[in-house]
Structure formats: C-alpha cells, structure tokens
Design a binder for these strands. Sequence first.
DNA 1: GCGGCCCTTGTTAACGCTAACATTAGAGGC
DNA 2: GCCTCTAATGTTAGCGTTAACAAGGGCCGC
Lengths: 350, 350
Amino acid sequence: MEKRRGRSSQGVTIREVAARAGVSPMTVSRVINNENNVTPATSAAVMAAIQELKYTPNPAARRLAGSETFRIGLLYSNPSVAFLSEFLLGALDESSKTGHQLVVEKCGATAATEKAALQKLLQSGVDGIVLPPPLCEAKSILADIAKSGVAAVAVAAGQPGPDVATVRIDNYKAAHRMTQHLLSLGHRAIGFIKGHPNQTVSDQRLHGFLDALSEAGLDPRAAPIEQGYFNYRSGLAAADKLLALEPRPTAIFAANDDMAAAVLATAHRLGLNVPVDLSIAGFDDTLIAGTIWPALTTVRQPIAAMGRAAVSMLLDEMKRRRGGGGGTPAQQLLRHTLVERESTAAPSKP
Amino acid sequence: MEKRRGRSSQGVTIREVAARAGVSPMTVSRVINNENNVTPATSAAVMAAIQELKYTPNPAARRLAGSETFRIGLLYSNPSVAFLSEFLLGALDESSKTGHQLVVEKCGATAATEKAALQKLLQSGVDGIVLPPPLCEAKSILADIAKSGVAAVAVAAGQPGPDVATVRIDNYKAAHRMTQHLLSLGHRAIGFIKGHPNQTVSDQRLHGFLDALSEAGLDPRAAPIEQGYFNYRSGLAAADKLLALEPRPTAIFAANDDMAAAVLATAHRLGLNVPVDLSIAGFDDTLIAGTIWPALTTVRQPIAAMGRAAVSMLLDEMKRRRGGGGGTPAQQLLRHTLVERESTAAPSKP
DNA sequence: GCGGCCCTTGTTAACGCTAACATTAGAGGC
DNA sequence: GCCTCTAATGTTAGCGTTAACAAGGGCCGC
C-alpha cells in the first residue's frame, strides 16, 4: 500500500487531474470555474480527466484560496434574548454554510456605547453589518455605517433608510390580519395598546389595526387606544385604563406580547375570565406568549429565517458594492403567521 | 491606512493574534485546541488577545490543514425557551471560537420523536451530543447515546449517569440559600411549590428548602408544600391551594420562575399586594422573572456559561475517547447567584 | 517581414491553519 | 558541574485551490 507523502488522505486533487490531462493545475481550475479563455479541446481533455478520476474540488481549499471571504459583523444591544438566539441560529447557520465569518458584538444601551461598539466592529475589519432591532432604527448608528461605507442590513425595522438592505415582515398586514381575526370572532369594541413611539413598527401595527376597523365599517376614531412602551409595566397602566371604560372593550390587541401579558394579568386581577369576558391578542410570539395561561394568540415572525436572510442579503449587498455597486440595496419581506392560542374567543354577549 | 498585502480582506488571522500575544502562531493554535502543553500564563495571554481581536479560526483553513473538526449535536425538546436561548448563545460562542460545528436539532415531546430526532442527529455524523434539560434525564435517550458510543454532556441534570459528563449548579445549595433569604426577612410561614417529579433537580431544590427550615428551628413537616410541574398552569393550581390556607403563608418559594409568575398572577387576582402581603421567590431567572411586575427574586444559573462549558467539556470528552479513553467523564459545578428583585420583602405583620 | 497585440497556458505565491520536527530552557540525577 | 530528560515553544512545510502576473504563440497591419 502506497503511503501518502502528505498528512491527510484527501481524495483526488486538482494536480492529479492536471497531470492526467497533460496541463497545469491552473488550467484545470479554469475549466472548473467555467472561465472562457480555454480552448474547447483543452477543456474537453480536462473534463475527461475529471470524469475518469471522479474528481471533486475540495471546498475548503477553494474557500481559502478564493478572495470572496467576507467578514460579517452582528451588532446587538438588548433585544429580547429569545429573539436574539433564534436569530443568531439562523445567521450562524447561513454564514457557516456559505463559509463566511460572523463576528458578534454586544453593546450597552446608551448611544455612546453603541457608537463605541460599532467603531470596534468597523475597526476589526468587517465588510458588512447586520443590525437586529432595536439598533436597526438607531439613526446615529445608521449614519455612522453609511459614512464608513460598509454594507448593512436592518432586521425587522419599520422604515429603513435608502442605504441599507432590510429583512422584515409586513407589520401593517400582520396587525391588519390579527384585527380581522378579532372582528371575525364577533368583537366590535376592540381596544389597542400602541408600541413605543420611537419605533416605526409601532405606527405600522397601529395603522393595520385602524384600517381593518374601517374596512369592517367601524369608525376607527371611536376605537379605544392607549399608549404603551413595549414593556410589561406600560401594559399594566394601559390595561387599567382600557378596562375601566364603559362599555368595556370585549377584546384588546396589544402591539407586543409583553404588554398583552400585562393585560392578561390585569384582567385576572379584575376577576375577568379570559377569553370568555375578554379576548387578548399580542404580537411577536415571544416566550411569554406560550408560558402564561391562557396562552396568547399572537403574530409570529420567522426569526431564524430572518437571520439566514439577513446574512444572505448582506453577502449579496457586499458583492454588489465590490462589483461597482449599480442598483439599490434589496428589501425582503418574510411571511408572518397568526398563532391562535387560548386567549381569544367569541365575545360572550354579542 | 495600511493596505493589506494579500488578496482578500479576511478577518483576524492566527498570526495577528500571535503577534499581539507575543507568541508564535503555533502556540495560539495549541491554545485554541485546548492542548495541554501550554503554560497557564501563556494560555491566558493568548485568550486575552483572542478576545480583544475577536478572533475566530477560519474553518476552511482548519479543515485544509488537516485538523479534525468535530461536529457537535445539540438536541432539545422543550425546556424553557429562555433557558434554551441563553444556553445556545453560550454554546454557539464556544463552538465558533474553537472552530467546531454545532448542529441544533429540535424534537417533539414524545419518547418516539425524541428517539427519532436523536437517530437523525447520530446519522448526520455528530461526534458528540449536548443535552440540555429535560432530555438530560431521559433514560431512553441516554441509553441510546451510550449504545451509539458518541460522547455526551448532560446539562443541569440532577443525578447524571456514569457515562456522561455533566455541567450544573448546586441546586440544593441554591434552594437552601434562597430559603435562608426568606427566613432572614422574617418569614416563618413559607409555602413551597415542587418541580416536576421526573426531574432530579426538583428533589434537590425541595431538600434545600426543607433543610434550611430545619436549621432555622422550624418543623419542615409543617411547611405547606404543593406539587407543581414546572409550568405556569400547575403554578396557578398550586398557588390557589397555598393561598387558601389558614393562616396564609407570608412567602411562597416556587421551584421555578414560571410557577412563581403564576403565584404572582394568583396573588393579584386575590387582591394581595406583592411583596407587602406576600413574598414570592422563583428559581432559574428566566426572561419572565424580569418581565413581569413586580420583578421576581430568583436564583440565577449562569446559563450562557453552562453552554460554553458544555461544549468545551464535550470537546475534551471526544478527544479523550479518541485518544483511547482512560478515565471518566468530567463533572463541572458552576456558581449560581441569588438575584434579589421586588417580589420579596419582610412580612407586613410579623 | 516584423513589431505589436491578444489569446491561451503556465508559474509563483499566497489563503489560514496545523502536523511533524527542531529547539530551547529548566529540572533533576549522579 | 555535567549530562540527560522532559515540558514548552518555535520553525518548516504543505494541505488543495486560485489571484496575479509571466510567458509563449499565432495573427494582423503596414
């Protein structure tokens, strides 16, 4: 048995193919890569050799030798941990699959630390940056990125700037759909808790809600609406106000799950039976939605898919820029799902 | 600005790390691969350089250079999502840092789907498996793994088998400490909600609680204890029973956060003021603990660190086995913390 | 018929990492 | 005090591929 000179027992290499075809390895490489400066005759000979030896190029070596290895930065502050991990899963999967490097950087909540973390990332030589929420809406971050000239993709942002690619769901449509769901159950008095005013999605969700009401022939100006800030505590306050109204709404749609959970807690405190006396709908399908009881009807974003899409789009975007950069960054809209659980039902007294 | 000599704009390379740490690239390589012939001081310096530069080994280069790249499977059914996400973060971090591949597989709740998912993972050629709870206690899974001969590490399991490595905290001590905390606030009538009987940690937490009572001179047999199953709903039922007692406990310690959140909801429903009328303590410090209001006093496991440790131990274990396999799998105990938030205080009428 | 040009093919040097071997420094025996 | 032995670190070379440049050869125009 012939012992290999090298360390590893790889399969057929490009050199063996080259030897067999009577050309240089480089020519084989050109054939493999469909470059056009090869004589048909040479090409045929190489092809034959490849067939005979059952040669397959070693992907690791290709990646290493090729220049197209990008370095992708992912900067996050403090989104929901659940969101982040699922997102990361998708992003890592995609980047490892395509053989690119993903560098994850965490930053604090203040504008200064955000800026610092971004600079650190930029200095470490990333070619593109993925921005999950809420950073995707931070103006100063987006401005710094635009200035630096690296590619960026904003995830789950509402209204992206013109310089960045985006992956998101259609928040308007999702809220619209959820409202339709409540309407179809027979609810007419539906309260709404708005999201944080500094995030664009808040507006989109609100408008989806309002438009669905209009379309159903209801007056959106009559709908009880309270301001919330995407956290549990603001949900408690908003729920207190909404549930004190006369007549009391038969359903409440909160712009995210944390606030919906707060509505549920408040309803229980008031002795209301959910969903019999009150239906509650959330948005995001975070952990809490399935934990509490009754479990929340909510809207689910395909988070892992968004992570994959973000990386994939960023790669495209970086290639586009490297290639001269005609056109504009891509926008991608992923499909959301309405998750119907136990917190919604037909109103008891229609 | 210095222009790179090479063709591509790769990220940080092993050479840069080596330069920064003042050693040769080979030494860095040894550190990354956890080889044992490196001085702790050198290793620490290299680690620091890795951290600072955010270095991740290039997997393509590794494969090409002939090192073995392990494939690690992570099989999860449905632990708390929050636990999983943070755990995943740590596991991903560690595996990407050491340049190994992490394959995550989800399975359903039935024994059959668990078995199927495990088989799928094994067939995809993983060299080792990480088992977060509750799978780490599933006998049939552990048996199948033992039969297949791949390495495994059980996370947060109570009593591990002899064939698997484990990472966990001292549940007994943590529950003991939390009980002491409640006692020191002046509580004497403390209710307890047990965890799922099929998980060893439930017992450990219960005993920590009981022993702390005894040591304080209280009769543990007099303590009001209800069975729970680690989910919100079982917490609701248990809380109903505990809060109907006469005299009512002034504090309730639930064996996990989900059940503690249910106690909080029930207390609110009954018009009790938390923490004035009732103190509530949880366990795990999952996302829900900080989300609800008042936020829960609870025990925090260093979950991300456990993820990192699990992967790192698994790598050691796989090398150990490949190297002939003398000795036994490692056991690692990580440190927990008592997180004091707003749900506990001194009882109002002592 | 000869210089310039393009078109094809070859050569060289990486890409980032690690196996195998080489070297150094320190410990310990006699 | 010298020599061996071992543990820690460094050096060299090459994994399989391709970018960048070099070289050869045919064709054209004048």
